[in-house]
Amino acid sequence: MISFAYYCLIFTILFIKIPIFKAQSSLPTQQLSFSSRFLDSVLQDYAFRPFSRRRPRTGVVYDGNVPSNLTGATVSALRLRTGSLRKRGFHGYKEFDIPKGILENPYVERVILVYHNLGNLSSLYYPLPGYLFLSPVVGLLAYNAMDLTAKGLPELDLRASENPILVTFKTLGILPNGVSPKCVFFDLFGGVAFDHVMNGSVCSSVTQGHFGIVVEEITPPPVAPPPRVTEDPIAGGRGGGGNGGRKKGWWVGGSVAGGVLLAAVVGVLVMWVRWYRGTKRIGRMKDAAEGGVPLTVAAVGRAKVPMALGTRTKPILETEYVS
């Protein structure tokens, strides 16, 4: 028999696990909340929901509700026969005027045109650095209307074969002075294209996607730096002189080295002159000694020594000067 403690244990486990599962299931939505393609899939689901609660009528616009984390965005859906869309088009679907001659690929009998208006979430899902949005980003995507409860449907390739699709924005932000507005187009593959604005608030396109009107951000001109004062380089320092200081330092160092080398050369030259003069003087003394009167050599014992000759000048006594 199962005890009461066992039931309490099972109840505790279930009570703890259920919130964890809910938190894990909401995690992918938070991680992908800023993906424009994931947003398209979510809005397709919410745009289709009004069709499942009533008998849908062809050619009637149904507004859908969006989840709380997408507050500020709106979504709508319009179901049409492809033949009627091709022959007549559809004018006045929110900001869009769809001309006749629209072709879809692959071919389907009925098509649902889903409308997006991202409102204040425009720059969050479609960031455009360097530009400011004057209008919300609006979108028009086509889906197969065979299954009105389907989720995650792929978009049809919707194209205009005669006249372009016109997007008329009803309200625009304040236009800064000196700038011109531009139409911006976001395709389903991450591409961005710009075009001129017609009649102040109208954009055109031959295919589906998301549209808006933007202006370039005005950045203040760069402040000119103050004029630089030329300064002599600080002795022993590495800054303050720039390239001129380094060149001047090299010039001073080269001058000092050249002076030292010149002094060494002069010193060597002076020593060589002194040595040359001394050698010449010694040579002259030797020549004079060799050219004088030779001394008589006499034998003294076993050695021979020079001996002076007799006095050649007769000495004169002092008494002889007296007459």
Rank of each mutant, 00 (worst) to 15 (best):
S35Y: 09
R37I: 04
R49F: 11
R53C: 03
Y62H: 05
R37M: 11
L27N: 11
R55N: 15
R57A: 13
A47Q: 04
F21W: 06
L32M: 08
D40F: 08
A23V: 06
K22T: 02
K22G: 02
P28C: 04
R37K: 10
Y62C: 01
Q30T: 10
L43D: 01
P50W: 01
R49K: 06
S41N: 07
V66S: 10
S41T: 07
F51K: 14
F48R: 00
L43N: 06
G64R: 04
P50E: 00
K22F: 08
S35M: 01
G64C: 12
N65C: 05
R57K: 05
S26V: 10
L39N: 11
S36W: 15
S26F: 05
R37L: 09
Q44A: 09
L32Y: 04
G64A: 15
L27W: 09
L39S: 13
F51L: 11
Q24F: 15
N65S: 08
S25C: 01
R37Q: 04
R57N: 05
K22R: 04
S35T: 02
T58W: 05
Q24M: 13
V66Q: 05
L27V: 07
L39P: 09
T58C: 03
Y46Q: 14
G59M: 08
R54T: 15
F48Q: 00
S25Y: 06
F34D: 07
